[in-house]
Structures are given as C-alpha cells and as structure tokens.
Simulated scan of single mutants.
Amino acid sequence: MQSIPRDVATFAGLRQAMTRITVDTTGRGTQDITSRVDQWLTQAGAADGLLTVFIRHTSASLVVTENTDPDVRHDLVDALDRLAPVNMPYRHDLEGLDDMPAHIKTALTSVSVAIPVVGGRMDFGTWQGLFVVEHRLRGHPRRLTLHYLGT
C-alpha cells in the first residue's frame, strides 16, 4: 500500500492537499480504508473542509457503510452478486466471467465519495466507515486519489 504525497497548497485561506494511494485487495469483498485515510488527513494538516476520494477503476468501488458488524458488508456483497450474477450471458467478457458483473456492480455503487472533514477527521457517524469494494473474484492493486480542500 503505497502513498504518493502531493504538495499542500494554500489559496485564500484554504488548504489543498492531494495524494494517490494503492489498496491491494484480496478478491471479492470489502476492505476498510477509514484509518488509512484519516492518517493521511492528519499528515496533510487537515482541519475543517471536504475530502473527495476517487477510485480509478471500473471493477471496484467505494462505499460508506457499517463499520462494526462484518455481516453487513458480506450481505452487501451478496446482494450485489444477486443483482449482477456471474452466470449471465454477457457480451463483454474480455477479462473473464466476472468482468461484466464487476462493471455493473461499480455502476450501481460509486467510484467517488465526498466526505466532510471536521477537526481533521472524516465526519462519520458512530457506525460508519469508508470501504473499497472489490467486485472481481481475484485481488488487484486499486489506485485511489484523495483530495482535501479546507482549513
């Protein structure tokens, strides 16, 4: 998991910081990146502002969901599998049977999230966390861009 730091710039009292990180997934499922993103916010000197997280892929996505009971995340992945099963006759299968279902699942979720930052941390509720969802059966290195704008 590599982080590529970007310079922090200041514009009219606002600070801006950007980085790219890589998240190595292990295959179909979710991976909590909340603490890693919070650590970057601390390193960037974030106080109050807005964080945008963008995943640079069409077969993995981002979700804000329950961070306490892992059954929630397993049920989410299972529900997406029911909506876009592998065993359908898709036209697009260049990278295998799980290729097109992964694209559909990404389209149903999100590749970008905007999260308020308060006191240098993502302003999540008690049970919320930020997760990468790997829609492919095999793990992949997933590249994300993080952008912070605030004080």
Score class of each variant (00 low, 15 high):
D24G: 05
T25S: 15
G27M: 11
G29W: 05
T30W: 01
Q31G: 06
D32T: 13
I33W: 05
I33M: 11
T34M: 11
R36S: 14
R36K: 10
Q39N: 14
W40D: 04
T42F: 10
T42R: 06
Q43A: 15
Q43P: 06
A46N: 09
A47L: 13
D48H: 15
D48V: 06
L51N: 07
T52D: 10
V53H: 05
F54V: 12
I55R: 02
I55T: 11
T58Q: 08
T58A: 13
S59L: 07
S59I: 00
A60P: 05
L62H: 09
V63P: 01
V64I: 15
T65E: 13
E66K: 12
E66V: 08
E66Q: 15
T68L: 07
P70S: 15
P70C: 13
P70Q: 15
D71K: 10
D71Y: 07
D78N: 12
D78T: 09
A79F: 11
R82F: 10
A84Y: 01
P85K: 12
P85H: 10
P85Q: 12
V86D: 14
N87H: 15
M88D: 09
M88Q: 14
M88Y: 09
Y90F: 10
Y90Q: 05
H92I: 07
H92N: 14
D93A: 14
D93T: 11
L94I: 07
E95G: 04
L97C: 03
D98T: 01
M100F: 04
M100L: 12
M100C: 12
A102Q: 03
A102W: 02
A107W: 04
T109I: 14
V111N: 03
S112R: 01
S112E: 14
V113F: 03
A114N: 09
A114Y: 03
A114I: 03
P116H: 00
V117W: 07
G119C: 03
G120F: 06
G120C: 04
R121L: 01
R121P: 06
F124Y: 13
G125Y: 09
Q128S: 00
Q128C: 08
L130H: 07
F131M: 03
V132W: 01
V133K: 00
R136F: 05
L137P: 04
R138I: 00
G139S: 10
H140V: 12
H140F: 09
H140E: 12
R142I: 12
T145V: 14
T145Y: 04
H147P: 00
H147W: 01
H147L: 11
Y148E: 00
